[in-house]
Design a protein around this nucleic acid. Structure first.
Lengths: 218, 218
DNA sequence: TAGATTGTTAATCGATTAACAATC
DNA sequence: TAGATTGTTAATCGATTAACAATC
């Protein structure tokens, strides 16, 4: 187990993939060691924060030396569960669902495997996206159970999302990557990661208009 | 001006679109008033937080009554800049770019207008996505300048993103909705809203594996 | 060994929550 | 008016940063 049951704050967890990304880039440049100070300058965070964050999971560094890039990359990958089998399905084979299925990087770089897409639209059922079949939503229960799927992307209209998510949780889904613009209420042992695109765009809009105003004030 | 130059924390800003969404839902149900307490129960946040957040921008409520749903919806929309003209372009007309262009809701519900997509791929240049043309990236400078575009979604490979974003900022883009898995470094008057899908998926994976572990411990 | 840098404790800062007087 | 609920101040909580002894 990566951490001994200690509860890590979600602020820390959300930063881990970014560390992972920077370490991957360092690795690609054949850099073998890095200090928290150097990394902090690249990432524009404090060195303290990096050391604090990492030490939630154990001491990965060495005094006087810093961190071994390769090792730290692997360790953070383990913490994130990327060493485990991460089969997933995509429910909703519309534009967004297909775009996710097409995004190679999840598979090639991080080992996620899209096992199937699902849709109710007869025009979509049967087609393949990057070699992955679109199945009828009727087959969801069977597929989740027989393949032991734990992770599902939800790219369906918001009206349908809560009901189908509830069912899917009963069938065994433990993590929803939710793109529907609605909040899902599910049992405690199920986790939801929201990607609320419209909300993200709105915060951008706020900042765009607000920085303009600030400039005008000066 | 929505706020008199006061600097609002980004934690607050990121919550506004969610308030906006819940108020929109209440409006759709013809509910005319709501107290911070009722809203807090629906949204699963504290009533204190709602009142604190809103009072950064002025007193929208009335003692003994609560908030007028319609009015508060409109006011938050104004704060977010949704009353202003929000023309945007999408740079990168691959799967994700097209999926964004196809997402009606930005336009119909919130008034964003996708003016054009851009790509370097000759197979894509000239096609239309939901009535919006895909143009050659060569035309970017001219298009941004003549249409006064401020907002751009970046859905291009990460290697190309930093260079093109730099150029686009010079040409007038003030806000990037960045889907490329890389951090953009741009002048202070330019704002970047990142949608790092892979990172979001990784935090989900962490939580999925971690809650399993917690259950096993019990 | 001396220098560098971690791991970790202590201090600070900011965000959230509680409380309540103001007032509709 | 009495009851309800805001706006806002004060208290608490948690997250970030600073500092430094430990140690490679």
């Amino acid at each position: 187990m990566a951490n001994s049951g200690k509860n890590i704050s979600s602020a820390v967890i959300k930063r881990l993939p970014r560390y992972f990304r920077y370490l991957g880039a360092l690795k690609a440049r054949n850099i073998t060691r890095i200090s928290s100070k150097e990394l902090s300058e690249q990432m524009m965070v404090t060195a303290s924060q990096i050391r604090q964050d990492l030490n939630n999971f154990g001491g990965f560094g060495q005094q006087g030396y810093g961190y071994n890039v390769d090792n730290l990359y692997t360790e953070i990958g383990k913490i994130l569960g990327l060493d485990k089998r991460n089969d997933m399905i995509i429910v909703g084979a519309g534009n967004l669902g297909q775009a996710l299925a097409n995004y190679q990087s999840f598979n090639e770089d991080y080992g996620y495997k899209v096992m199937a897409l699902f849709d109710v639209n007869p025009k979509l059922i049967g087609i393949s996206v990057r070699g992955v079949k679109v199945l009828d939503t009727d087959e969801l229960e069977n597929f989740i159970k027989t393949h032991g799927i734990k992770i599902a992307a939800l790219t369906i209209p918001k009206d349908q999302a809560p009901a189908i998510a509830k069912k899917m949780a009963e069938w065994g889904i433990k993590g929803f990557w939710n793109f529907a613009p609605i909040d899902l209420h599910l049992p405690d042992n199920v986790t939801v990661e929201n990607v609320h695109l419209a909300e993200s765009l709105m915060t951008l809009t706020y900042n765009v208009h607000n920085r303009e105003e600030q400039e005008q004030e000066q």
